[in-house]
Amino acid sequence: MAWEGAGSGTSTAAVLVLEDGRSFRGRAYGAVGETFGEAVFNTGMTGYQETLTDPSYHRQVVVMTAPHVGNTGVNDEDPESKRIWVSGYVVRDPARVTSSWRAKRTLDEELAAQGVVGISGIDTRALTRHLRERGAMRVGIFSGDAIVGDADMLARVLAQPQMKGANLSAEVATSEPYVVPAIGEKRFTVAAIDLGIKGMTPHRMAERGIEVHVLPATATAEDVYAVSPDGVFFSNGPGDPATADHPVALMRAVLERKTPLFGICFGNQILGRALGFGTYKLKYGHRGVNQPVQDRTTGKVEVTAHNHGFAVDAPLDKPSDTPFGRAEVSHVCLNDNVVEGLQLLDQPAFSVQYHPEAAAGPHDAAYLFDRFVSLMEAERA
């Protein structure tokens, strides 16, 4: 394997090895050791703290396309969960100085404290172009004593499991139910199925007077209706939706009762499967905060936040008949025509593939939480 890239950052050497044999040499960033996952790239210039703590990135090594990362350090208010979920982190130029009054630690310190192995000082543009051309693939990062012979490192990468076929939501979901109270007057109760939920999602609902009962990924229909919900929500999460048979069965039970339903990201893929559509793996996925999506119900184009490597295979040109009535594609990505939302026309259920809760922004799609409230208002009336 040929080494590529100039090292920078700490004095400890690090190597990134892709499953097709291409490798990059740089310097350790965060913890020293070895890590493995699926190599993906994120095009966001801000919000790295939310990215790192998003459970949907479980078992993924995230390559940041923005050249400077870590400028604002790490604080204790912005995480989307209680820990960093990425398997590894790849940056070109780590910030030398943290310049935010909110910062408590540097990003390098936080990665090291949580045992996240990273690499800095490599040509992330070349790596991103490679992933765009060849597709997301398995990768390993090795630093310090973990650096061994080229053939041995590549063999360790090839021994790792693929993301296709991975069933991961139960690994990141809560094990016990908990409640996020409504902010101000309580108007509705929602049962939220945690498949890898981000902290900002129940907060966005709480802002609208919703008391959110967050339930484990293993929740049953009996668990859902024990909280007497006005609506049911299915969250984002990691892994291949083709393996998510239990959430699909649960969603069908909710659809049979015609309870207002809203899904985000993995929840959109679950709705697709529940309606009888297939899902497939994208070549390199959508990850970032600058993806253009059109709401086909209004014609409006939104700039949106994404993190998904799988998509729903549904027809764009006409409504489809499903066991739960007619369904149509409500949102579409203007970059590549990937399905970005579904809605039922004969009962109150819809979903989007992107992230309207987007804590770091943009906030163009925040209206979708209001749309969920409107469904529950109409059902109550």
Results as ranks from 00 to 15, higher is better:
Trp3Lys: 14
Glu4Asp: 11
Glu4Gly: 02
Glu4Tyr: 14
Gly5Tyr: 01
Ala6Arg: 10
Gly7Asn: 09
Gly7Gln: 11
Thr12Glu: 15
Leu16Trp: 05
Glu19His: 12
Ser23Gln: 15
Arg25His: 11
Gly26Val: 07
Glu34Pro: 04
Thr35Trp: 11
Ala39Asp: 05
Phe41Glu: 01
Asn42Glu: 09
Gly47Gln: 02
Gln49Glu: 11
Glu50Gly: 02
Glu50Leu: 03
Thr53Cys: 02
Asp54Ile: 00
Pro55Ala: 05
Ala66Asp: 15
Ala66Pro: 13
Asn71Gln: 07
Gly73Val: 00
Pro79Thr: 03
Arg83Cys: 06
Ile84Glu: 09
Ser87Ile: 03
Pro94Cys: 08
Pro94Phe: 13
Ala95Gln: 12
Val97Ser: 15
Val97Asp: 15
Thr98Gly: 15
Ser100Phe: 09
Thr106Cys: 07
Glu110Leu: 03
Glu110Gln: 14
Ala113Ile: 05
Val116Lys: 03
Asp123Val: 06
Arg129Lys: 10
His130Ala: 10
Glu133Thr: 08
Met137His: 10
Arg138Gly: 06
Arg138Ile: 07
Val139Gly: 15
Ser143Asn: 12
Ile147Phe: 11
Gly149Trp: 03
Ala159Gln: 12
Ala159Trp: 11
Gln162Tyr: 04
Ala170Asn: 09
Thr174Glu: 08
Ala182Ile: 05
Ile183Phe: 10
Glu185Gly: 06
Thr189Ser: 15
Val190Asn: 02
Ile193Ala: 14
Asp194Trp: 00
Asp194Arg: 00
Gly196Tyr: 01
Met200Gly: 05
Thr201Ser: 13
Pro202Gly: 03
His213Val: 02
Ala219Tyr: 00
Glu222Arg: 07
Tyr225Phe: 13
Tyr225Thr: 04
Val227His: 12
Ser228Lys: 09
Pro229Ala: 03
Gly231Asp: 01
Asn236Thr: 07
Gly239Phe: 08
Asp240Tyr: 02
Ala242Glu: 11
Thr243Gln: 14
Asp245His: 14
His246Cys: 12
Pro247Gly: 06
Val248Trp: 06
Leu250Met: 07
Arg252Leu: 08
Arg252His: 04
Ala253Gly: 14
Leu255Trp: 02
Lys258His: 08
Pro260Thr: 00
Ile264Lys: 01
Cys265Leu: 08
Ala274Ser: 04
Leu275Arg: 01
Tyr280Gly: 08
His286Lys: 14
Arg287Met: 13
Val289Lys: 09
Val289Gln: 15
Val289Asp: 15
Asn290Glu: 13
Pro292Lys: 09
Val293Ser: 14
Ala305Thr: 10
His306Gly: 02
Asp313Arg: 15
Leu316Phe: 07
Ser320Arg: 01
Asp321Arg: 10
Arg326Ala: 00
Glu328Gln: 12
Val329Met: 02
Val332Gly: 08
Val339Asn: 01
Gly341Leu: 02
Leu342Tyr: 11
Leu342Arg: 03
Gln343Ile: 06
Pro348Met: 09
Val352Thr: 07
Pro356Trp: 11
Pro356Ser: 04
Glu357Pro: 13
Ala358Cys: 14
Ala359Thr: 03
Gly361His: 07
Gly361Val: 02
His363Tyr: 05
His363Phe: 09
Ala365Thr: 06
Asp370Glu: 14
Asp370Pro: 15
Arg371His: 11
Glu379Gly: 06
Arg380His: 13
